[in-house]
Design a protein around this nucleic acid. Structure first.
Lengths: 233, 233
DNA sequence: CAATTTTTATGTTTTATAACAAACTAATAT
DNA sequence: ATATTAGTTTGTTATAAAACATAAAAATTG
């Protein structure tokens, strides 16, 4: 089955994966306790306030993790890419999800059953350490994001979001177009601003020659400018 | 030595501590590799961009962890109380500190040497799990804070900060006065607003009879109102 | 205890950004 | 193909919060 193959490759045979160095037996055991399923665009992966059943690993596609804020305005907390985990914070905290997850394009996500994962982790301190390191790194990102979102002005926040998209998803083959076709609303939710202001500021950037817009495609023309705008706030 | 005694009590003999259940040998080993020192008010505990040497545990006092934002305006990321860890995020991420820590009153902090801690953790999966759970819980707090700080209005943010102070430090013996005497500037840094607006909004709350002010002492008169203001944003 | 600095307080002005509105375009369904 | 809905764009107005200014009070220092 194709979906399981790509999952296996990504999770167990990629050197960046936290599962790369676990024993062959453990890999087989985890694989036996994993279920994959596919999601179409805009489908719910998990809902705020429900209980995690395992570690969800994104195998293909893109998923947004977001919280509803005051007045229905969403705040995107994180974007996931293939090979990344979703909802592991709640799992390890022993809590319900604090946010919801929705696919932003056709995706495949696989869930490693909680008890199977925990039993492997108990026997392999390195795996626990890798998870610890991963969570700690994400907490650092979250803290920096808090400061950026609260202190930078609209232009700085949008520029930072675009740089974040580039970092997370890279470019299409042209080496210029950001490989993520978000709606203007999602760009706004990522940058903590209204949709109107996201649109307006994007078109200002385009007028200034920093980026070029073709529908949802965003071409990065002057990345140095983008970095400068992000840094000055 | 008094400082070491209170540290020992807090870290190893309190049921809430992650170190409560480790072996007696491990406790002794960690204690041997721990150094305590005291800090006066407004003294630096660690500086952004430097390398952690171990796990810092606050034994007595209060410490603020903050980042400098655009235009010199600080953002308090977290407040620590006795029994809490400081700077463990950077330690477990294998990174330099992303924030600075400064005591806001006379404090004692003890550092468990990194390698000693790690070797105990490798042999005790439960300890790693406890740390994992602690980090994951904090990440949840951080994510919720991001949404609050970006979406709530000034009144909601200040009310939330006051509730957070109550939760973290509790009350003096009168059962009304928040047991934390922060400067107005620190209250502002915690609530993501200017000092002027923190002062103004505090005095509005006082006029409305929600709180009562006596210098830095804040008496909570109507906690239900405070919760309501925080919730409506 | 006078002098200086820091912190707190309050009033006024300015500005960034949200809120609202209206039209246009693209996507989806009938 | 046409109707309907969802998403994008641009302009205008309203407002929350910052910036600025000044003064009083409290804390610190010589």
């Amino acid at each position: 089955m194709k979906t399981e193959e790509s999952f296996k490759e990504l999770l167990f045979n990629s050197p960046e994966s936290v599962f790369y160095n676990i024993s062959k037996d453990d890999k087989e055991y985890l694989l036996k306790n994993t279920e994959c399923r596919s999601y179409k665009k805009n489908e719910l992966v998990f809902l705020e306030n429900t209980k995690p059943s395992g570690l969800i690993c994104l195998s293909e596609g893109k998923v947004k993790i977001f919280k509803e804020g005051a007045g229905g305005r969403d705040q995107i907390i994180r974007l996931s890419r293939p090979g990344g985990f979703i909802g592991y914070r709640a799992l390890f905290a022993g809590q319900n999800y604090h946010a919801s997850a929705v696919s932003i394009e056709v995706s495949i996500a696989c869930t490693i059953e909680k008890n199977a994962l925990f039993s492997v982790m108990k026997n392999d301190p390195n795996l626990s350490f890798a998870m610890l390191s991963s969570l700690a790194t994400e907490l650092g990102v979250s803290n920096m994001r808090t400061v950026s979102l609260t202190q930078k002005h609209i232009r700085g926040r949008l520029a930072e979001s675009l740089l974040f998209l580039i970092e997370t998803y890279g470019y299409f083959d042209d080496g210029l177009t950001i490989k993520a076709l978000l709606s203007r609303e999602d760009i706004a939710s990522l940058s903590n601003m209204t949709t109107s202001n996201a649109i307006r500021t994007l078109s200002t950037f385009a007028q200034e020659g920093v980026i070029a817009l073709e529908g949802r495609r965003i071409k990065v023309v002057e990345i140095k400018m983008l970095q400068k705008i992000s840094n000055i706030g």
